[in-house]
Design a protein around this nucleic acid. Sequence first.
DNA 1: CAGTGTGAAGATGTTCACAGCG
DNA 2: CGCTGTGAACATCTTCACACTG
Lengths: 205, 205
Amino acid sequence: MKERRIPKETIDRLPLYLRCLDKLIEQGEENISSENFSNRLNLNSAQVRKDLSYFGDFGKRGVGYETKKLASKIRTILNLDQKWKMALVGVGNIGSALLTYSGFDRRVFEVTMAFDRNPQLIGQEIDGVEVEDVSTVSDRIAEENVKLGIIAVPASSAQKVAEMLVKGGVTGLLNFAPTLLDLPEDVQLAQVDITKELEQLVYYL
Amino acid sequence: MKERRIPKETIDRLPLYLRCLDKLIEQGEENISSENFSNRLNLNSAQVRKDLSYFGDFGKRGVGYETKKLASKIRTILNLDQKWKMALVGVGNIGSALLTYSGFDRRVFEVTMAFDRNPQLIGQEIDGVEVEDVSTVSDRIAEENVKLGIIAVPASSAQKVAEMLVKGGVTGLLNFAPTLLDLPEDVQLAQVDITKELEQLVYYL
DNA sequence: CAGTGTGAAGATGTTCACAGCG
DNA sequence: CGCTGTGAACATCTTCACACTG
């Protein structure tokens, strides 16, 4: 096990390794070589070996990596062996899509609270989650000890919402609003910016 | 004007510059310095100057960059001074959210066609767009000369849908399914992977 | 002997520092 | 005089190449 700093690009790839491993496990594969891995993910095989070696020596020379053991190890590294409750703010188009989104593994990620400012929505139940008044968000998430927040409000109110979530104790934010958020250093941010993706995409066309 | 290759990180940042400029223009600002820019976007000011200089010498020494001229230039670089019609495949949670999403500038990006395989959805109209049978997608987008496709189907059918879209002539894809797509070299891909974002996020918590 | 783990080389991106222009 | 544009230094990430091991 090395003590070197881990490149964020490596962290970027871990979820992809994991997905690939889960597929292999389902198919009954017990081992995979870095070469095979790299073909499936369009990477260089040395990249795969280096990425994995940051966390210890998992591979068997001449054989490869044990799929089950490696998958479980990656889950531990990424903190996926616990349940993350999430608070959603903004139950509009995207927000309500997330509430009913079936792509999450609910043993790991689940939206357990939802907030909006629209009185028509407050009190309604969507997929088992009751929409609450956004003005109560700081207190409520502190009460429920929720550490992840999802911002699905218009850009104009995103910063305000972020501050309310931080006040309530979240340490991670997933932001769908096309805005740069100004956050305390100890709060992590993941940004999903659809318009930006499209704008970049068409540059290459 | 330099002939150097442009780093993709630079292309990544152009949409952010543009957003920032649009805000400044709205506020009536006529000029902005690289220093001011870099503060707003949490970058190094040399970075800003280098990024912009790839496309020509837009700045006035001692003054900065003309907001309107620069915004217009960036739009041209990114190919945003034309209208991009988009075909959406998969009118589920995320798909229907995208159909009614108000975050796009409709002079640039608009979902003009939608497809699904669910007979209950086919024929329905959502936000002015009629949902058509996915089996017709290749022909229909060729007919309408649509060059951008959005994949919002489950991972299991994403590759198949991608192939239908490519057959119909798209050159750019925005994929929401958590899968690696295997595409021809001349088809550009943008990936929006919410689960991956979350998995990376919690690593840092 | 196939396939890992890893120094070293190479590629790419960022920041510094300053000459030079408006 | 202020701020751009840009070589050069630095930092980071990727790939090569090969010693070594199960």
